[in-house]
Amino acid sequence: MSVVLTSPEAAMRASGVTETGGQIATLRGRVLLAAEVSSLDAVRDVIAHIQSVQTRTNRTRGQVFIEVASAEQLEQITLLEPLETPELITVTWLARDVRSGAPGTGESCRAGVALGRAVRAWVSEMTTGDPEIDGDELSAVVFGDSPEIVDLRLDLISTLGLLAA
């Protein structure tokens, strides 16, 4: 397994991406990108770099989860500047206004909750949780600062044996 990054700035520093270019050496094989909408530009930068280093025989594959406040916000984003990814990377948008908070509470979905649920479900389905079996071809980048996102990063570090940067 590779690295769980903590913020757009940390991701760019750790990956070597700068304003003048760079290389994301740790993002290969399978990639999991998860972000709150406030980090959408950082996600775009990471995806652009992944696209720039792919070859026919070395293709990154994976999943992008992006949490937005509402379906209306999602519509505005996708109309203005759609998020384009390589063919083997899927994007899932998570609108909080159409999701509930903790089961049985009737609460609204707080920032980071939908993202945390989606990432944990993906990890449970797509990995064994054993770094020896899964190998080191999975990299995860998690952007956001809400308490739920901090907990998510800690879970990924613990579950997947990832390193924090």
Rank of each mutant, 00 (worst) to 15 (best):
4 V>E: 01
8 P>C: 07
9 E>L: 15
15 S>Y: 00
15 S>K: 00
15 S>F: 07
16 G>V: 07
23 Q>F: 09
25 A>T: 13
30 R>V: 15
32 L>M: 06
36 E>S: 03
37 V>K: 03
37 V>R: 01
42 A>G: 13
42 A>Y: 05
48 A>S: 09
54 Q>M: 12
55 T>E: 12
57 T>R: 14
60 T>V: 15
64 V>I: 15
64 V>F: 12
66 I>R: 02
69 A>F: 06
70 S>H: 07
73 Q>V: 14
76 Q>G: 10
77 I>T: 06
80 L>W: 11
84 E>A: 10
88 L>P: 00
91 V>C: 05
93 W>S: 11
95 A>K: 02
95 A>F: 04
96 R>A: 05
100 S>C: 04
102 A>H: 10
103 P>S: 06
109 C>R: 02
114 A>Q: 00
116 G>Y: 04
118 A>W: 07
122 W>S: 05
122 W>Y: 13
123 V>T: 07
123 V>L: 04
123 V>W: 07
128 T>I: 07
130 D>T: 11
131 P>R: 08
132 E>G: 01
133 I>N: 05
133 I>P: 01
135 G>M: 14
136 D>R: 13
140 A>N: 07
140 A>E: 05
142 V>A: 11
144 G>W: 02
145 D>N: 14
150 V>D: 08
158 S>K: 13
161 G>I: 12
